[in-house]
Write a protein that binds this DNA or RNA. Structure first.
Lengths: 340, 340
DNA sequence: ATGAAAGCGCTAACAC
DNA sequence: GTGTTAGCGCTTTCAT
């Protein structure tokens, strides 16, 4: 069975002794066809191993049944899990998923959006990206290409799904406050992207609730290597008064913090409490296990797909903003601040 | 700029005052076109915001510039990292990446291959999957659709990339043997998939080199939840004589083992040594850090893409089998067996 | 150097 | 109920 022998609907029609129009109708069970021909044609198609050419169908029907998805890093577990779930749901609905890495670079994002657009994807799911250009996505969406944002805002009346990062950070901070901590260090990889901003806001909100003014010296928000985070953690611990707790926003921050603390023989939670927003294997399995604020990646992926599918089948024309709740998971890494 | 206004080459031609044939030639700089018209046409295209329709091009050129990639689990870090790197390289070459989850289920794999084929992907990259059906992929490949296997064999003369799992397990085992361990427990998630088989073979090979017959009771190879692995680990530790070291094949096995050992107050490496094939955050950051055999996911992804691109541009017609080397990383989790 | 026209594989509108 | 035909947007002969 070589490429040469790729069968077209024409072959099927000939084999079944009907016209190609009839063959098409029979295959798609559309319009009026006699049951007899349906059988005849199906059998012919089967025997020839006919596979309709999705490209030709796309050209004709103006729909590719392909969704594009853009994230900064396909290998980031928080994205990978979402992609996995989204693909699953889309697959059920007959859609395929085209993915792209933006590396958090605006030009690359532009390039990919352009590429996907030329590829005529039926819809676009976009994760957060550097200095988000709301206008472009909004234009696309109103221009007829459904766009669903994931932790990304792009206009007042657009559809999107958001993890409740603000509440996540708020609850995490409040938990630490309840334990008696007042000097809580915050490590974030970015204050630019929407999730980062929201989390910092949640942190400050929780402090404000207790009438505590956030100490800028306790907040470190720039993207950096794990090694750098480790030394950041140490530098924070050498402050006087030193922070009694670390709130880590993201895996890299957690990893760096743990590394730094460990290098200096600081013990969790006896010497310092640690809490992470975003649950991972590392948090679950570290000894001691790290308390975390988690959310359901599967749910996020599913809902993202669902949102898209509803837009696509027209059952939902109103833009919808979905907020995904988070859960605080208390483990072993937090305790009341020690007396120093 | 609504969908209605999507510009075609016809619009460009009209705006530039040339025929569509000429417009096409000018845009693609193909055939003979005067420099003047190239300018004229380009300008018109620019002004209209013309984007060539990739679907129409695909139909005409019989190439979609899309590669399909199938893995059991898009969110598995070992796949996610590879996908990220592969996408990056393919993106450079103007290809897009369609991904699919097989969930390690043969029917789903079939379905996706079929889907991708109808979508006319230019090539297919397939990871390992349940009871691998060599014939089907080989047929596809000889049928004109380039197929690159990733840790997957599908015929004697097909291209593929393999991580050297056998050597990885061999070296890990040998390291433990060198420390004086003889009763080494092996935890694997699967003995069916190619990587699992190879690893077990490597383990047995290393034992054989020392004239040690593998004890079947020490080998646990079935997919299972982390909790189950934990109890497996404990049950192994209650054997007499007990194993003095654990060789964990994969993250889940490592996580379960650590969990189990920890629950029972067993200390690493004092009471038992632990080593993992496949490096992860968890292994790197656990306390104590876990010695591991690692390989470069970026390299794997790149090479996969490279292999595909070479097949595609015809610069490589001979099938090639690439073996990716692994590195043993000694950390804190292994010690000589204690005297019990 | 450029225009006209065929055709990639398919579906849908229109005849009969 | 079935056949014929136009046309989706593009590239590529083939004339000129």
């Amino acid at each position: 069975m070589t490429d040469r022998s790729r069968k077209t609907i024409k072959d099927v029609a000939r084999a079944a002794g009907v016209s190609i129009g009839t063959a098409s109708r029979a295959l798609n069970r559309t319009g009026r066809v006699s049951e007899a021909t349906v059988i005849k044609v199906s059998k012919a198609a089967q025997q020839l191993g006919y596979q309709p050419d999705a490209i030709a169908q796309s050209l004709r029907l103006k729909s590719t049944k392909v969704i594009g998805m853009l994230v900064t890093d396909l290998s980031n577990p928080f994205f990978a899990g979402v992609i996995r779930a989204a693909e699953k749901r889309l697959q059920q609905a007959g859609y395929a998923l085209l993915v792209g890495n933006t590396d958090n670079e605006k030009p690359r994002e532009r390039f990919l959006i352009d590429l996907f657009q030329r590829r005529r994807v039926d819809g676009l799911i976009v994760g957060p990206c550097e200095s988000e250009d709301a206008g472009m996505l909004a234009d696309l969406d109103t221009g007829g290409l459904p766009v669903i944002g994931y932790d990304r805002d792009f206009g007042s009346d657009q559809s999107g799904l958001h993890v409740d990062h603000r509440r996540a950070a708020f609850e995490a901070t409040r938990h630490l406050l309840n334990l008696g901590h007042t000097r809580i260090a915050l490590l974030s990889s970015s204050s630019q992207l929407s999730p980062g901003r929201e989390r910092i806001a949640g942190y400050e909100e929780a402090l404000a609730e207790r009438g505590i003014a956030p100490d800028p010296a306790l907040i470190r928000a720039h993207k950096s290597s794990m090694e750098f985070v480790a030394s950041e953690a140490l530098s924070l611990m050498s402050m006087r008064p030193a922070p009694t707790a670390f709130l880590c926003l993201g895996t890299r921050m957690l990893a760096g913090t743990l590394q730094g603390l460990r290098q200096n023989g600081l013990r969790v939670p006896q010497d310092v409490s640690v809490l992470t927003v975003g649950d991972t294997d590392l948090a679950r399995l570290y000894a001691p296990s790290i308390s975390a604020v988690a959310w359901d990646l599967d749910l996020v992926g599913q809902m993202l797909a669902e949102l898209m599918l509803r837009r696509l089948d027209g059952s939902e024309t109103e833009p919808r903003r979905i907020m995904i709740p988070t859960q605080f998971i208390d483990r072993e890494s937090c305790a009341a601040p020690g007396k120093t």
